[in-house]
Amino acid sequence: MLAERAYAKINLTLDVVGRRPDGYHEVDMVMQTIDLSDLIWLERIESGLQVGSPASHIPLDHRNLAYMAAAAFLKHTRVSQGVRIWIEKQIPVAAGLAGGSADAAAVLRGMNRLFGTGLTLDELADIGAAIGSDVPFCVYGGCAVATGRGERIRRLAHPLKAWVVLVHPPVHVSTADVYGAVTPADYAARPLSPRMTEALIDADVDEINHLVRNGLQPITEQLYPEVALLRQRMANVAKVPVHMSGSGPTLYCLTPTQSAGQRLYNAFRGFAKEVYLSRFV
């Protein structure tokens, strides 16, 4: 039996740049791994796939991305044995933090270790691309520019060690509904990823906060007004910019120090139940 960490991500930029022939939207994003994580336990079994979790709000069958990843790995490698997967959830579900994709990526990495198959991260990412758009990024972790439908990854090394305070409101956001409401008027004429890349390399938190942009945020806030209300309340308390990750509803603030992050965490706990203090990985 072995354990593998599944790290959440935030979007520093998310620009929708067009519509693809396959029906997906073309995106240009800068994504960053944070240390909010699930823990995935993997154990060899004679055959088949088993998924378990103490979390009551995730499927434990073929609908679970971790299950899909395990099935895809076994098919690709032709490993004759099976695997038992146990998921300890900490990342909020349907939160814009790629929790399910992170679990799938951790299963791919972990099964590669468990069975000694020797696949590269690039090969694991290729398997993951068929499971979900965020899975390839989650296989690599760190920071990257993601294009296409999110599966084309250009990894980015930078020195910034920022802290992140996240608030997850009790709102269920449908990613399909959010993307379904995107119109050509919402397309970004010029993605911000090149400028964000420079700011990350310069470790300039003020400039990063200035550049953070999520093209889905106005759409999510129109469909789910409570997200907009929460963002405004957070901004009034924090006096720093408040951003949204993915299609939401999770909102976050960036701070350069743990002490500043702790102060925001304490302030947000005054009116929000799910608050997390995390940092870049």
Rank of each mutant, 00 (worst) to 15 (best):
T255N: 02
L2M: 12
A157F: 11
P184L: 10
T183G: 12
M234A: 09
T257N: 14
K273D: 09
I201R: 15
L156E: 02
V145G: 04
A8N: 01
R213C: 12
V16P: 01
A70L: 01
A94W: 00
V173H: 02
T120I: 13
Q258C: 13
R5F: 14
A272T: 03
L160W: 11
A235D: 00
M68C: 11
V212N: 00
V212A: 10
S278M: 07
H243V: 12
V79G: 02
G128E: 01
A66H: 00
K239D: 10
T13D: 03
G261K: 00
M31Q: 02
P54C: 12
G52H: 13
A267Y: 05
A129C: 08
V240C: 15
E198K: 15
I131W: 00
Q258M: 13
E226T: 15
D204Q: 10
R231C: 09
K161P: 05
L211A: 05
Y179W: 09
E43W: 11
P218E: 09
S101H: 08
V227D: 01
T13S: 13
R195I: 08
S37I: 08
G23S: 05
V164T: 01
D206Q: 14
S247Y: 06
M29G: 06
G116T: 07
I219R: 01
I40R: 03
A8L: 06
R63N: 11
R195A: 14
T183H: 11
G100I: 04
L160H: 08
P92F: 12
T197L: 13
G99W: 00
H57D: 15
L223D: 04
D204K: 08
